[in-house]
Design a protein around this nucleic acid. Sequence first.
DNA 1: TGGTTGCATAACTGAATGGTAATGTACAAG
DNA 2: CTTGTACATTACCATTCAGTTATGCAACCA
Lengths: 122, 122
Amino acid sequence: MQPFSYASSNQPSSAQLDATFGALADPTRRAILARLATGPASVSELTAPFQMTQPAISKHLRVLEKAGLISRSQDAQRRPRTIEAQPLAQANEWLERYRELWEARYQQLDSLLDEMKSMRTP
Amino acid sequence: MQPFSYASSNQPSSAQLDATFGALADPTRRAILARLATGPASVSELTAPFQMTQPAISKHLRVLEKAGLISRSQDAQRRPRTIEAQPLAQANEWLERYRELWEARYQQLDSLLDEMKSMRTP
DNA sequence: TGGTTGCATAACTGAATGGTAATGTACAAG
DNA sequence: CTTGTACATTACCATTCAGTTATGCAACCA
């Protein structure tokens, strides 16, 4: 587990963002996260949907775990993984700083559409 | 420029998310984006803050451009870059699907804090 | 015209990434 | 106690990545 901190405003280190975004930059790992969002799953369950071998999935799980995006527990021989949302929240916080940028973009699009509309209604 | 689409609801391809998250998984590229969020900048302006050579920055710019995160224009010998927010909006949309996850997490933290508080006020 | 500025491109290098097959290991079940 | 299941680990390979130096090229400037 991560060291405890009180506030939700602990800003992520650069290395943490590197790891998080790096982990998300792969479709297999995003699919694994999507699966884990519905609840914990064993390695073989996580392997089943893919054409890859089990060691390949284990590698992906290692990447996700090092980024703090999943954690490992134990159930007999099984090592179920659980999604950990905090790094996702941090990535989201980082992106939020650019929100007004893309919202301004939509504003431009809106006014373009308005303009087009006014051209059809003279 | 990207092919035009009316709605803001065009969902990104897997490859697009790969490129976007991959581009964001590097501190130099995130710093470049942060700079460009304040307005367009030439390559030499973008190179100045770093200890890297200019070709290294040009490589990073190529990664950002292939991900659609920046665009290139022309001003005499200069090739100023402009930030393009759409891929950031798409990445944000992807993350939003997990929002309830980390909000639930904060809820747990809140109740933990409540519990601790109630222990100090018997 | 000839030099300088601004940037791109090419060729190279070391390290990291993403996959494989083969093997090792802990636990459970007969 | 032996066997099977679930997973990790190792060794290996091809590809990509992040940086370098060297070079090319277009546009401005004296």
